[in-house]
Design a protein around this nucleic acid. Structure first.
Lengths: 232, 232
DNA sequence: CTAGCATTCAAACAAACGTTTGAATTCGGT
DNA sequence: ACCGAATTCAAACGTTTGTTTGAATGCTAG
């Protein structure tokens, strides 16, 4: 096999960059930090990835390719088992978000570090990563939204897309800010110090399903005119 | 009144920086972009705010002070009207997230620009803004979590804090990514091009309440062992 | 009108940025 | 063992970064 390309320089760079991008963001991380942390020469990044942008793309690609393939694999298996019947919403949500969160305990595929980086980057789209992410996600998004359309035929499709967005946000935040939001709400979450990923899954799942299946904002439900009445 | 401090240089800088930080992030925005966009001298930022960090702090302070005061004002009015009875969860959620979203249509207090900046920055905490945000939010967070504790006496407190996090994430994403996530899910959301903020409120509200009041992840509910069975 | 403080300005500062270069080194195939 | 390609390396490239300086200008009070 003469195909063995990389020495471990590539991997060391990718792993180090993944961690630093997660902790400091893309713009906030310098090439010298990356190469110093990886113990390689400064020019190694440009040699192996062409540029800093190319490095970021590769950091995402090696994880996202696996994640989205896995998502589609799970969804395919579910649909094959269901035959012609539509899937349950809980199944679809689990195939998408459950697969993502289970990745947190899979150290071989990035673990918590990549999950936090992903959740973070979706909010700070550096304009050049947006096209890349949109392309990486387009197939998966199409499959899952149509699956949700079939699973919830009574819900307007626009509403389903909205709630998919909301679910994405709640999930990204939950994984990106395991210690970020703990500062905002310094209310100590009792026990769980590090093992939050496993305990997070069932909690997040019931929240997402509750939101997904909430009554439509049709108008008869609590309309809530906000009581701004201040006397003085 | 000899108290009139600022020329409008301060305001021009704050407004311009708010927009640029939103569009490009803190690290991705240079002082020269800010001062050029505001039409002021480069040294004006350091003169009025001391440093770039000081500018970011002030950008947040002038908006967050108003927002969180307003949140507390609404909550106070609600609790005064309710007397000794606990508030309804929908009231508390509206006082917190409804007040935030209504800010989007209030151009005098930042409007959509600040909302997107806020949602963005909560995910990329530059380590020096975390302490600042934690301090700005501590009072409000305390008041609202205890209000939720009273409103949902049967739900474990840790669970309420979790779901508060999830609600924060869904909301931040919804406002931060009005066009970000539209690229990820390029499924065109039909009509609404710009007026999304107003239409967003009822949709998000029912989603949040559905998630907040979802059945607890107790275990008897859909446990969903994921069907990973793939043949080849 | 003028003294005095607040503000603005052009210019320069050292430091850090991403990238490039060309020689030194390592490595696999014959 | 040797050649040629792949990789690593120290050094420097030209920009851009945030900040500082000291003189020029604006404004207000006496």
């Amino acid at each position: 096999m003469p195909e063995i390309r990389s020495s471990d320089t590539r991997l060391r760079i990718l792993d180090t960059a993944e961690g630093l991008f997660m902790a400091q963001g893309y713009e906030g991380t310098s090439m010298r930090q990356i190469t110093a942390g990886a113990g390689v020469n400064l020019a190694a990044v440009n040699y192996h990835f062409g540029s800093k942008e190319g490095l970021l793309r590769e950091v995402f690609r090696r994880r996202l390719d696996w994640l989205n393939d896995e998502r589609l694999r799970v969804l395919d298996a579910m649909e094959a088992a269901a035959g012609a019947a539509p899937l349950k919403p809980s199944q679809i949500v689990d195939a998408f978000f459950g697969t993502l969160l289970r990745m947190a305990d899979d150290e071989a595929h990035g673990g918590r570090v990549f999950l936090r980086l992903l959740g973070r980057t979706l909010t700070e789209p550096s304009e050049f990563i947006r096209a890349f992410l949109a392309n990486e996600y387009s197939v998966v998004m199409g499959r899952f939204t149509t699956a949700l359309f079939r699973a919830l035929p009574d819900v307007p499709r626009a509403e389903i897309v909205w709630r998919f967005h909301f679910m994405l946000g709640a999930t990204s935040y939950a994984i990106a800010g395991t210690d970020t939001l703990r500062l905002v709400t310094d209310w100590h979450l009792d026990t769980h110090a590090e093992e939050g990923a496993t305990r997070l899954l069932p909690r997040l799942m019931s929240f997402l399903l509750g939101g997904l299946r909430a009554p439509l904002p049709g108008g008869d439900d609590p309309a809530l005119p906000h009581p701004t009445g201040g006397s003085s």
